[in-house]
Every structure is written in structure tokens, then in C-alpha cells.
Write a protein that binds this DNA or RNA. Structure first.
Lengths: 341, 341
DNA sequence: CGTTAGCACTCGATAGCGTTGAGTGCTAAT
DNA sequence: ATTAGCACTCAACGCTATCGAGTGCTAACG
């Protein structure tokens, strides 16, 4: 569909534009040592590329900038994966080598590494609920009528809720109910917890109907709110250094979006595995129509655990980011692998 | 030091400026129904007020704006406490009435209420560590050689760390050490935990020297990292709607500051009890030299528990914010009172 | 003597205008 | 097919004039 020369020119324009953030003219391309055509020739090709929809002109008599379609072609066919050099690889790994024995820590760290190395905003989703199961369920009394309910998953994740007992129930009764739950529910995946609760444990706890309802409520609440704890972000303000965000209004809509955890989750959920690139308007959310989102899933033994992603302007260093996401997702998989043995 | 009329004029200027964000001229003051002097008279008074340092002129032939000193005088002598009307009081309370049985929830909610009702940025610090004590310390085994250590405080706060056992230690040995710790340390305030550990429990655990060191490390880590969990913020992007932040660079320095939890903690710590107002350069941090920070401590039985605060531009609705902080800090004290019975 | 009307003055903001220069598209020559 | 040449376009920039909100000062007034 495109000639070799057109591809080459498109490639050069995008590379240059990514660096300079300014429209690229024919002369500056022609001057490059790896280009041996005159500006006029380049101009002709650029005109063709524009007609084909790969380039745009902000206004007549300005250079060209890539269109969404142009970026798309670039990502699909042209981009050279940023050669994360051995030194950088080591750097990434060295971030992890310290005693990182908590999953939350690893994930948060991953987000930090990403944003630091790219200067974009990073978003990391922790492991999906369906791969985690209940390990332990416990009640710690605080006072006469209050207690903390603690849920531990097999991944080492801990959730907790403070509850106050109904007046007509003693701590002992409550504790008994918990014991029964523990006996029945340990090992059950969190997603099946609810149905399991109703079907199997229901009758057994019949006589503790009240407590049962209450505990169920706590479990539900916990499972719902877990979403908050699964999204980690870093470098949100990095966006502000990009020239495309010199307008405060844009910044606000973007930052507001990033604070909406549910929306973020929704964006990240149900992404196909592997590395995905969403360019500009390919994103469903209007607030990031001038951004690109690159995501990679990390998985253990074929099971997708979670997602790491980078949000930046459409004019983004795709090669570098994709390369980085690739090795980082693999490193994370290895690192997290031990939790799932 | 100031005549009644000067006070009145200063008051009017600040009130108007807070609303309009634009320099106030003599004519617009004179036109107000509650002012019966000609512009010329007002001008004379304004010139005097400027000489005294209460007003500033952005440039000749512009109106006057309040100086830091002006705001200070306003806050100390002139401001009418925003009459949080009964309806709003109810609104605040209604936010809380739902089943809020977790302390974190209450605090986070308080931050949200503040930012929603003021359109500024709110910062809330949870209860100080020294008022909380250890309630329970537990180990939940995950696999052969990993476990989750869980610490519960008397406030219902839960902290946890995943740990991996040294190879030469069994889970049973570890568990035993935990039992001893539990017996000795429950009820001890968190701040004294460390010294208590060394002095009293040290010998007892002598034979478990290795484990002891390890557990100590975990406790330390937990106590240190607790800071992160104690700072709650809401409405960080509200700043962006203020005209004084139309400049992206300012926004960035501000947002960067807000992300530094330790700095925030430092700013809030050791504040005198009651309501405090820090105007502009009265703040030590340069990044908020064009902001004002209003804080209120909330306390139970004379003991200060934590701090709630509002960060806004110096041109801030002091009356409203102070009034709101006042009733909210009291409401929180009541609500949190039950944890400290 | 405090207050006020009048007036010259200041200065940021805004609009209009010519200049500049990077970049284009087209044509004709190679 | 490529390229040199040239007329054309248009944002950006700087300059100037104008406008008007607001001031400071002086003199008049009750």
C-alpha cells in the first residue's frame, strides 16, 4: 500500500515529531544524513501521505504532523522497539532485588519505575480477583461491642473492616460464626465466595441468621471496595511537563479522570493479553482523546494476573515505552510467580 | 491603630476581592449601598492603608488588592465566621450518619465533605500514633515459608506485611515468638513499642534471637510506613479552577508538593490546637506562598487526635472555611470519640 | 478640617498593521 | 522521476495607537 520511500518518510516524520513536538517541514527531513532527496521530492510524498490520511497539516504553510492513522501505521509496522539496553534492564531489576516481600510493594514499585523511566503517567492494576482465594478470616475484638474483621487472601493481601455487633449478640456467638465460615470457605476463590456462602454455608448458619447476614454484608463490602486498592498510579504530574498540556483546562479534565478509580478499572479490564496500544480517539474516553494508552498484561503460567500501562500524549515515544513495558511485565510475572506456587 | 472607617474599607475590599479576584477600585466601593463616601475620600483612605501595608497595588492605575498583612488583619479582626446555616450543618452530619464503622472511612469522608463544600483542596490527618496502642499481633501462614504478619491497633486500624521465613526456622517457632510478643505487648502505645520491645521482651526472646530481629524489623517497617495511610486528601484538582492557577508551572509545583506525604505530615505536625490560619508567605514552603492553609485539630477529652485542613489561594473565603472547619472538627471529635472509650 | 468635585496622568489591555520566515504547491527544466 | 525556482500562505512577532479604569493631587465647599 505504501512505497518504501513513503514508509521511510513517515517514519522519519513521526520520529522527529515525537522528539520536537513541532510540525516537521520538508527541508528539515531532506537535510538528514540518511535522506538523499530534495525537499521538493519530499514535499510531493508528504502531499500523497496526507491525502492517504497518514499526515495532517495544522494549517497551510506549516509542516506536517502525524494523524491518528499515521501513528497507528507507525506502531503496527514501523516502530523499532526501544532497545532497552542491558544497563537499563539491570536498573529495572535492581529496583526489584531488595527485599520486596509484599505484593503491594512490588506493584507500587513497578508503577514508580515506569513513570520514572518514561516521564509519562503509569497505571498498574494488581492481580485479578478471580485468581485469589480466601486464606483466612478472623475477628479481633476491640471493645465490648466492636471488632475488626480481617480477610487474608492467598496472595498475602489483607482487607479489613471494623464492625459493631448488634446488641443482642455476644462476641462469642459472632466468633463461632466466623469459625464456621473459616472451616467452610478457606481456599475458595473470592469471586465464588458469594455464591458459595449462600449455597453451602447457608443452612449450617441458619440458627445464626442475624450474624450471618451481617458477616455476609462485610464480605460483600470488602470485595467491592477492593478495587480501590488494586489501582496504583505514579507520575500523574509528569503530564504537565508535556507541551500539549499547557492548557489548564485540559489538565483538569485529565487529572479528574485519573482520580476516578472505577473508570480506570473499566478502561483496563477485559484488555486482550499482550501489549496493546490505544492511540488518541481509539480510546473510548473523551478526556484522553489526545493521549495514547499502552498496556501490557502480566501473567503466570498463561493466567493473566493484571495489567501495567503508560498514559502519555499521542506524540509519545512508542518504541521506548513498548520495550520497557515488555521487559517489565515479564519481570513482574517472574517476581509474582512465587505467590502462586 | 486603624480608624473605624479604615477597617470598614479594608473589610469591603477584601470581601470584594475574594469574590472577584480582581483589583478593587475606589469607585466600585463608593457605589455600594452601605458606603456613603465619595470615591475621592475612599482613595485617600486607600492610600493610607497602602502606606500602612494592608493593601497593595499591582501597578499604578489599578485598584488595590489585600497584602498578606491585610489578610492577616482581616482574619484576626474583621472576618465574620461563615454562618454555616442549620441546613448545611445537617448536610454535613447526614454525610456521616450512614453506617460509618471504620475510622479510615470517617476520615476520608471528612476530607471529601470539606473539598466538596469549599471547592478547595482538603487535607486530613488521621489520629496521631501516640494515642493508639497495639491490640493484636498475628501471623497467618500462606505457604511453607511465607506468612502475613498482621497488626491491629485499638483504633481498629490494621497494618500488614508479608514475610518469608528464614530457612532454618519453622512456622511453629515463629508462631511461638508471636505469642510471646502478643502476651507482652498488647496495650502498649505504638510509640513506646520499640523501646518496650528491647527492654522487656528482649531477654525472654533471647533464644529466638533470629526471629526476634526479624519481627522487630517488621514492626519497625510497619510503624514507619503508617504515615502514608494517615494522610487523606480530596479535591486536589479544585485548585485548577482558581484563576491564580492558570499557569501550568505553578500547578505542577503545587501538585508535586501535595504528593510528598512526608512534607505534608511535617507541615501539619506540631500545629497548635484550635484553628490556625497560615497566609501566603507565612507558610514555610515556597510552593504554597500564594496559598493559605487553614487547619483545625480535632480532639477527644482534651487530647489532640489529628488535624483537618483546607488549602486554597490566599484569596480564599476565610469566613466560610473557618466556620466549616469548626463544626466539622467538632463533629469528627464526637464521631471518633467512641473509639477511645 | 474633613469631604468632595475636577482634572491631568499612568499604564495594562486590546486592536490594528506591517514584517518576517518557515513552509507549501506548482511549474518548468533536467 | 527528480529537482530548482518561485509565488503564495499564514502564524508569530513587534510596533503603535487607542481606550478606559483607576489614581493622586489640588482647589473649592460646608
Amino acid at each position: 500500500m505504501l512505497t518504501d520511500r513513503q514508509r521511510m518518510i513517515l517514519n522519519v516524520i513521526i520520529d522527529d515529531y515525537i522528539r520536537s513536538a513541532e510540525p516537521i517541514g520538508s527541508r528539515s527531513i531532506s537535510k538528514r544524513s540518511d535522506v538523499s532527496f530534495s525537499p521538493a521530492t519530499i514535499r510531493n510524498e508528504m502531499a500523497d501521505l496526507e491525502e492517504l490520511g497518514f499526515l495532517e497539516q495544522p494549517h497551510t504553510s506549516a509542516g506536517r504532523i502525524p494523524s491518528i492513522k499515521g501513528y497507528r501505521y507507525y506502531v503496527d509496522h514501523l516502530v523499532k522497539l526501544g532497545e532497552v539496553n542491558e544497563q537499563e534492564k539491570q536498573l529495572v531489576r535492581s529496583y526489584f532485588t531488595e527485599k520486596m516481600n509484599q505484593m503491594e510493594q512490588i506493584i507500587q514499585h513497578a508503577a514508580m519505575i515506569l513513570s520514572n523511566m518514561t516521564n509519562y503517567t503509569s497505571i498498574v492494576l494488581g492481580p485479578e480477583t478471580f485468581t485469589t482465594s480466601l486464606k483466612h478470616f478472623q475477628l479481633v475484638p476491640l471493645s465490648q461491642d466492636t471488632a475488626v474483621a480481617i480477610i487474608v487472601t492467598n496472595t498475602g493481601h489483607v482487607e479489613n473492616r471494623t464492625i459493631s455487633l448488634p446488641e443482642d449478640m455476644t462476641m462469642e456467638e459472632m466468633q463461632q460464626a466466623v469459625n464456621i465460615l473459616n472451616a467452610k470457605l478457606v481456599g475458595v476463590p473470592l469471586v465464588r465466595l458469594k455464591s458459595k456462602l449462600h449455597s453451602e454455608v447457608g443452612q449450617e448458619l441458619g440458627r445464626y441468621a442475624d450474624q450471618f447476614e451481617r458477616l455476609l454484608g462485610i464480605l460483600d463490602q470488602t470485595l467491592e471496595s477492593e478495587g480501590d486498592h488494586r489501582v496504583f498510579m505514579s507520575g500523574t504530574t509528569n503530564m504537565l511537563t508535556q507541551p500539549e498540556f499547557k492548557d489548564v483546562d485540559k489538565v483538569k479534565t485529565l487529572l479528574d479522570l485519573l482520580e476516578e478509580t472505577p473508570t480506570i478499572m473499566q478502561m483496563f479490564n477485559a484488555l486482550p493479553s499482550g501489549i496493546q496500544v490505544r492511540i488518541g480517539t481509539e480510546n473510548t474516553h473523551e478526556a484522553i482523546n489526545t493521549c495514547s494508552l499502552i498496556t501490557a498484561t502480566y501473567s503466570v503460567e498463561g493466567k493473566s494476573l493484571g495489567t501495567i500501562g503508560i498514559l502519555g500524549p499521542t506524540r509519545m515515544d512508542y518504541g521506548k515505552v513498548i520495550g520497557l513495558l515488555d521487559i517489565l511485565s515479564k519481570d513482574m510475572a517472574v517476581l509474582l510467580g512465587r505467590w502462586y506456587k
